[in-house]
Design a protein around this nucleic acid. Structure first.
Lengths: 212, 212
DNA sequence: CGGACGGTCAACAGTGCGTTGATTTTTCTC
DNA sequence: GAGAAAAATCAACGCACTGTTGACCGTCCG
């Protein structure tokens, strides 16, 4: 729990055990929170004993970190696509980006849920997650700035500030939806509602009510 | 941890010890997360031994629940004021409500932070926090519906859905701000930015950029 | 005075984490 | 394919923290 120095040297052959631990963790996260998962379960799932687990990972939060870092790469790649195509309308671009995020949450809900539950109180995870969020914020802020300077979007709050609020809104809404929290957006209204808020916040225009 | 039945009978005289536990917990939450606080610290802070702690509370999460429930009452009272006065402009009403929430977070940051960190993975807290959020959502949704039916606000996403997203956005932005997360809204931009997003999302009108 | 009840704690039992050190298995080299 | 170095494994241990048991003390009331 003390963000210690590097663990033992990295193996290269028997790291399919490492994979086994990761996939076991991902599977178990579908059922319960990280705090309810024991190191022994992770070890058992990978067919090794508890002490052997520590040969591969420092702790169970290190396992989650590895899982999240792997996902982060996927997410960045996915998000690139909203900066690339500048030919589409704002409605399509925003809607598609948010839809892509929704897709990630659908595919990797358990891991993302665990990440969100953990980053606030575990420094190791916090750095990773803040990094993920920061990239999305920077991307969005840059886009907003562009849209304003070319006249497509009217002035408003600082692009950076606006982007921070909107990205955190998405994080929270995807999380609560994935968790099945009681006040949470249903699957059908998730993307349309978030899209509408983004569009109105950035472009301050009344958009056609998203079709059901 | 198993949401057991009622604890020992409630005392009425020496419940200033109970208070002592609560205030100790609140104080310690200023320094560290709940998971890093031991029952022994809570007991020591109240001048009793560890087993005695269990005379007053089932667990340390029960302490947090008590703390949050007490706060919830304050927050409801505070929030009433945005439904009562219908004479002010939307700008003033929304801004004042969000400012009131910001005030709560300034005064009770540690407890609210702990609540947000905990509710997602601890059923006991989850019910309490979902209740708090639900009330805010219902209030906001009702208000949006009113504003639309009297023509002050144009049509848009389902009022309920819109309110959910906006309330969760606030929760997350106040939390990240209070935590000092890296991508987070600074104190000065917190209320103005959130206000701008609420106004644009509900009224779809360009509002004067909030003064710096 | 006696016992009922609010309040207290020493001692115990359990669980889960992370480490040590000796041991087995793999791998690489000659 | 012998033999040393590195990779991988685990029994046994110590520790930190949680929650419980059962006996104990005061005091208020009949």
């Amino acid at each position: 729990m003390d963000a210690g120095p590097a663990r033992r040297r990295r193996p290269s052959k028997g790291d399919l055990k490492e994979r086994a631990i990761l996939t076991t963790c991902e599977r178990l996260l579908g059922d319960k929170a990280l705090r309810e998962i024991g190191v022994d379960e992770l070890a058992a799932g990978a067919g090794i004993s508890r002490p052997s687990f520590y040969f591969y990972f420092e702790s169970k939060t290190a396992v989650l970190r590895a899982l999240v870092e792997r996902l982060a790469d996927e997410m960045y790649a996915e998000a690139e696509s909203w900066l690339e195509r500048e030919d589409d309308s704002p409605e399509v671009t925003v809607s598609r980006s948010i839809g892509a995020a929704a897709q990630q949450w659908r595919e990797h809900g358990p891991v993302l849920r665990a990440a969100v539950q953990t980053w606030g109180s575990v420094p190791e995870l916090r750095a990773v997650w803040e990094d993920v969020v920061r990239r999305f914020v920077e991307q969005s802020a840059a886009r907003i700035t562009d849209e304003r300077s070319c006249g497509a979007a009217p002035p408003g709050p600082e692009p950076e500030a606006l982007a921070k609020a909107l990205i955190w809104m998405n994080e929270r809404c995807f999380y609560t939806n994935s968790l099945g929290a009681d006040p949470s957006l249903a699957d059908a209204e998730l993307v349309p509602t978030l899209t509408a808020i983004w569009l109105r916040s950035i472009y301050a225009s009344v958009t056609p009510p998203p079709a059901a």
